[in-house]
Design a protein around this nucleic acid. Structure first.
Lengths: 185, 185
DNA sequence: TTAAACTTTCAGAAATTATTGAAAGTTCAG
DNA sequence: CTGAACTTTCAATAATTTCTGAAAGTTTAA
């Protein structure tokens, strides 16, 4: 398989960004290549196109399936597994946010709740307790947004898109509808 | 400095989570300890409390300052630098989101724009172009939300909080105000 | 100036994470 | 069954990241 310069750049970039998005270079490249390519790709296509070992591809595909970002399909009369993106770009984005919420937010929320309950007896260290509560509230709100986004139907998403992206603007619309003059920031 | 069990758990947890939040274990622990502790801490306090080397603390503090999450303060008659959180928990959260947007979203948006412009001449690979456009739009919307959050004044934040956290609910309110019956999902 | 009290730097060591490729496992047509 | 066509596993190795601590740098009081 021969990649165009553009696709090459795109794939390499996703490899580099992979590390800050929670997966390694190979996984980032695999994902980018599967998303950007119209026809489903098999493990050998991927290994050859990215110049990585077959075993590495196998691991990477397993991880991408665990993230629910790709799904296997079969061609009739062919025993190989081919891989496709698990949905359109919106769905993939929502999935990434959901998985990251589970990994990055939920464990901390859970710990904070435990610590807060545990410490409700003891009358010590009010400052620490207060901070834990504040952090808990901020993270819970963030987690709530991600969950909402996750469960939002395409209609709402389209509404949000038309508003030009931004919670601020949504609130502005609400304020305008209520005829309450809002303060500019 | 002697840490209570609760604070200990909190700090260790932030160390572990650090890696998925974009910084290493030590940096996560430093940040947690500085946030949870009422009085400002100096590098030696931190090194001792976390059992890490003085050099490591120095690096970590530099990184946290680059993130704009802590700020140095001075005690009169003391040459040491002491460190405090740079603002309340809300501000810290907004800062983290902003820094992560700059690192995780902006470079990709920039690349996608370049690739799309560059490929607007060439009539090849419509599927790849379309996907790049879709990814660009999704990321731009996400980046827009983060930016809005960043620039939002406390009033709006309070409004959002009262709504019970969630863009969906905000949109519901808007729909209700417009008297357009919305479709449940 | 000097020296004490700090902080930062950075080369090497340690720890962690990613990758390879050969061997083992699986599946299915014949 | 058997073997060909696949996939997965995993021990060894490579690459990367983090950490240490000694040395160098900085600042200030005297």
């Amino acid at each position: 398989m021969q990649l165009s310069d553009q696709v090459q750049d795109f794939v390499l970039h996703f490899g580099e960004m992979g590390s800050c998005w929670g997966f390694n270079r190979t996984v980032g490249q695999l994902f980018a290549l599967i998303v950007i390519t119209e026809q489903p790709l098999c493990a050998d296509d991927l290994a050859q196109a990215l110049s990585v070992s077959r075993g590495n591809v196998s691991m990477g595909l397993k991880e991408l399936q665990a993230w629910r970002l790709i799904k296997p399909v079969h061609k009739p009369g062919d025993r190989k597994e081919y891989y496709q993106p698990a949905g359109d770009v919106w769905q993939l984005g929502a999935t990434v946010l959901e998985v990251r919420r589970k990994r990055e937010l939920d464990p901390t929320l859970s710990l904070l709740r435990d610590l807060l309950i545990e410490s409700s007896d003891k009358p010590t260290d009010d400052h620490a307790k207060a901070k834990m509560q504040e952090i808990h509230d901020v993270l819970e709100m963030l987690a709530g947004w991600v969950t909402d986004l996750q469960s939002m139907n395409p209609d709402k998403l389209r509404t949000l898109m038309k508003l030009g992206s931004g919670i601020g603007k949504v609130l502005d619309v609400k304020d305008r509808l209520l005829n309450k003059p809002k303060d500019e920031h």
